[in-house]
Amino acid sequence: MSEAPRERLQASQTERNSSEKVPRPVATSAGAAANAAALSKIGEQAFQRGELVNSELAALTYGALVRQLVLDYAHPQQVNEQLDRIGYNIGLRLVDDFLARSAAPPCRSFAASAEIIARVAFRMYLGVNAKVAHIASDGSEYSILFDSNPLAEFAELPEPMKGSLWYSNVICGVIRGALEMVQYSVQARFERDILRGDDCNEIRVSLVRELEERVPTDNEI
């Protein structure tokens, strides 16, 4: 518990370095391929415009954070939760940064947010190219696939943790926090991780519900 304030601070700092995580949502309609290319371009431009931070510094900082969490918590499962929480707090803030700086088009549907996250946000904050796959037929779930992960650049999981620790789980938290700020309550979780020997990284995002904006109630009658 005493962990909390420190984590928060750390979270904000990493975020400030802006080479860190991730996403945020807002996307376009189903213009498919041409659309994806346009978004990639937007992502690339946003990436170029932003201040860059040495990726080794980011990777090492993140590694130190995970390492400390692994020491502090008994079970890798708990570490996953903490990383998700840290990411969530980052996401709540990062989304405004993303909206203000990315120039991404507004998103008209939940499914459309996928392309924005993958093409623009991943590019902008992590400097990697991601793509969307496995969109559920009702548009309420999708996967984001990416091959290289700057956070895990130097990491290797020890055998006992290969089945339990999601090293980059902070990204899931960021996606969750960011989407919540634009009224989508979602679950995000890693499905595959190269660190575990899979052939690529996959984050599964599923919509829990759409939040509604409530008109503030008047105190007086």
């Binding site: 549907s109 939940f110 499914a111 009702d138 548009g139 009224q183 759409e210 509604e212």
Partner: peptide, 16 residues
């Protein structure tokens, strides 16, 4: 713009 266009069942919550 605030309404879904060419999207499937789910659409954006009341956007900006």
């Amino acid at each position: 713009d605030s309404l879904p266009r060419g999207t499937r069942a789910r659409h954006m919550p009341l956007g900006p």
